[in-house]
Design a protein around this nucleic acid. Structure first.
Length: 147
DNA sequence: CCAGGCTTGGAGG
DNA sequence: CCTCCAAGCCTGG
């Protein structure tokens, strides 16, 4: 089990991982000694790229809300969907999707920031500004590709 | 057992 | 346009 952090703008992204399996990702004001998986380092540095080459503990069968996490894992870079969309598709309540996102053990790998409310970005722990920055970054990187 | 949570759609001002 | 509110889930405490 390895751990480390990298920078995303003003934040430090703590990652606990081994091989391509990521067990924990969290945003912190403080750095953590050690490295993070290359795809995460690239992503945080602003390069558009698929984090789906990484696995998350949240995808394992039996993990709470794993069906929700698998669904969210499918959302590609630069795309967004609403809590309601996913709720209807999985036949659960929107609030349950929100609860699952709040408990997401590996943000970024499970891209919960791409799940937004019908009326705006929606929440994000520990700071909604992180979500907005991630979405802005992906918007910008995606727009350049197609005009 | 029980209340929460990154919501939503509808009602009413 | 805005605020208010209950439905509705299922896990952790």
């Amino acid at each position: 089990m390895r751990e480390g952090s990298c920078r995303f703008l003003l934040w430090h992204v703590h990652v606990h991982w081994s091989g391509d399996l990521v067990r924990r990702v969290r945003f912190s004001p403080l750095p953590l000694e050690g490295a993070v998986p290359l795809p995460i380092r690239r992503y945080c540095a602003g390069f558009p790229g698929d984090l789906r080459e990484l696995q998350s503990i949240a995808l394992s069968p039996g993990y709470p809300y794993s069906t929700v996490y698998r669904r969210v894992w499918e959302i590609p870079y630069g795309r967004i969907e609403t809590y309601g969309d996913i709720a209807r598709e999985l036949d659960i309540s929107p609030r349950l999707v929100g609860l699952a996102m709040k408990r997401n053990p590996t943000p970024l790998v499970i891209p919960c920031h791409r799940v937004v409310a019908r009326t705006g970005p929606g929440g994000f722990t520990p700071d909604p500004a992180i979500k907005e920055a991630l979405l802005a970054m992906e918007r910008r990187n995606t727009r350049c590709l197609s005009g």
